[in-house]
Amino acid sequence: MNQPHPLVAMIHAVPAAHRIAHEAFTREFPQATVWNVLDDRLLDDARAAGGLTDALRRRMLRLIAHVMDSGAQALLLTCSSYGEVVDTARVLWDVPVLKSDESMFKAALLSPYRRIAVVASTPPAVPAAVAQLEALVPAVRPGRPLDIVTVLSQEAAEAADSEAAARHLADALRAAGGADVDAVLLAQYSLTPAGDALAALLGVPVWDGAGAAARELRGLLITEEHTTVAP
């Protein structure tokens, strides 16, 4: 598949993810024509139901069907809570469909890192990210050991700006004994603005899900270019 301006749809559950993902695609995959679809009740309804229900899964599949029937050549689902629906979508549609952070996880696992940190500012994000990362290890990184350091800084969620958020994340990482990690993975799109400042504080690469997804889709949809593995 090689078109000059491939149509990439993104389905969001929160407005902030729309902005962050759009900025990542502008930076990493400017050739793409980006189509943003927002359902800002997805997370609230999932929380109220105590998790994903069959009705919520069908609702997400209807959103995916809408963009696919309208010509989307790829899809990024930016809400990790609905990531399992991607597995169904891949059976139903023959175009690239990505979960929010899987490109970041795969690229990090393919890199020579031996110790990585997964950082977040909300408690549910850490176990969800680690579960996805560990599930990919057997297929992507068989026989290569990986040490994962998990870090939670709720102060980062309340920080006044991205630089302050980065300082809170760096402090939490050092307190957790993770000062010697080879790379840091941001477990939430909302932390992406703090990425550059955090990399400067720690002196290691900092990966974000939206940027990695944009690079992977660029490599898949623009055949004369190749996806890079550096963040």
Rank of each mutant, 00 (worst) to 15 (best):
S121R: 14
A175F: 11
Q154R: 15
L109I: 02
P205F: 00
L136A: 07
A107K: 12
V97L: 11
A157I: 02
Q188E: 14
L110Q: 15
A199G: 10
A212Y: 11
A214F: 02
P112F: 07
K106I: 14
A120F: 11
G143L: 12
A160W: 04
A120K: 05
I116L: 07
P145E: 14
Q188V: 01
P138C: 02
I148F: 09
D147F: 10
P127M: 12
A159C: 07
L136D: 11
G211I: 09
K106R: 15
L110N: 13
V181F: 04
D180T: 09
A197G: 01
L201E: 03
P142F: 00
A214E: 01
A170N: 05
R115D: 00
A129W: 07
L98H: 05
A164R: 08
R141P: 10
A213V: 06
A187W: 10
A210V: 14
S162R: 09
P138Q: 09
V184G: 04
Q154G: 11
L217D: 07
R141E: 03
L198V: 06
S153R: 06
E155F: 01
D180N: 07
S100Y: 12
E134Y: 10
Q154H: 03
L146E: 02
E163P: 13
L198S: 10
L136I: 07
D182Q: 02
E158P: 01
D171Y: 07
L201T: 11
V149G: 02
D147M: 01
S121F: 08
G219Y: 00
E163Y: 07
A160I: 14
L217A: 02
G195H: 01
R174T: 14
R144M: 12
D196G: 15
A200V: 08
L109F: 07
D182T: 00
V140H: 00
S111T: 13
Y189C: 00
I148G: 14
A200K: 12
P145D: 11
A129P: 04
V118I: 15
G178L: 04
R174V: 12
H168R: 11
L186F: 02
I116C: 06
A160F: 03
A214Y: 01
T122E: 13
A160S: 11
D196H: 12
A197R: 02
L198Q: 03
L110S: 15
E158W: 11
L98T: 04
P142S: 10
V204S: 05
P112L: 06
E102F: 06
P124W: 08
V184M: 02
A197I: 10
Q132V: 10
I116K: 00
A172R: 08
P205M: 09
A131I: 11
L202N: 07
A120G: 13
P112K: 12
K99E: 03
L191P: 07
A187V: 08
P123G: 08
A213S: 01
L191H: 03
S162W: 14
L98R: 00
A164C: 00
